[in-house]
């Protein structure tokens, strides 16, 4: 039986064009999501595991309107726990202020930096200067205490402790 030529006649060899519009729409949606949900890399904020207290009383940082502060990050010596040494996780690697590490044993430099920042703030005529402690939750209190001592010595009256917010807040 002879094959029908209907399909042959009707068949076109035109270019198949993919509809790009939905793909571009989805791509833009993804970009907007990543921009909103992502964290902009900041010198002030080091990557660490913050304390997660039960019924956290922490207030969202944007609600504390004063930006006149110095943030001291206390980073664990073994942040990922890969060394297998629990003592290393509990030890602090350094105090990081605006991306600059200060040796944990160097309390003099820590005091000088806090004092400089406080004086610079006062020179600008700003009020309500405070020290923000962003400590890794696994680090021992012994490693945090020098910051409290240095801040009190530098006569900084306020201290904010960074912690995770209560879920659902």
């Amino acid at each position: 039986m002879a094959k029908s030529t209907v399909y042959k006649k009707g068949g076109q060899t035109g270019v198949v064009d993919m509809n790009m519009t939905p793909m571009i729409d989805v791509t833009f949606q993804l970009i907007i999501f990543f921009i909103l949900a992502g964290q902009i890399a900041s010198n002030e904020i080091a990557q660490l595991k913050l304390p997660d207290p039960d019924h956290s009383q922490a207030i969202e940082a944007k609600k504390i309107k004063v930006t006149n502060k110095v943030t001291v990050n206390v980073v664990s010596a073994d942040p990922d726990g890969t060394s297998g040494d629990p003592m290393k996780v509990k030890a602090a690697k350094a105090y990081i202020i605006v991306g600059v590490p200060i040796d944990v044993a160097d309390e003099g430099t820590l005091f000088d930096v806090l004092m400089d920042r406080k004086q610079a703030s006062e020179a600008r005529g700003e009020k309500g200067f405070f020290v923000e402690i962003r400590g890794d939750r696994r680090v021992n209190f012994d490693e945090i205490q020098p910051i409290l001592v240095a801040a009190a010595k530098a006569e900084i009256p306020r201290m904010n402790i960074s912690a995770l917010l209560e879920l659902g807040e």
């Binding site: 922490a58 969202e60 001592v149 010595k153 201290m159 402790i161 960074s162 995770l164 917010l165």
Partner: peptide
């Protein structure tokens, strides 16, 4: 981003 906040407090002045 983890939802991060701050617990405000006051420091004593001088040698604690």
């Amino acid at each position: 981003r983890e939802a991060e906040g701050q617990i405000p407090s006051r420091l004593p002045i001088g040698d604690i």
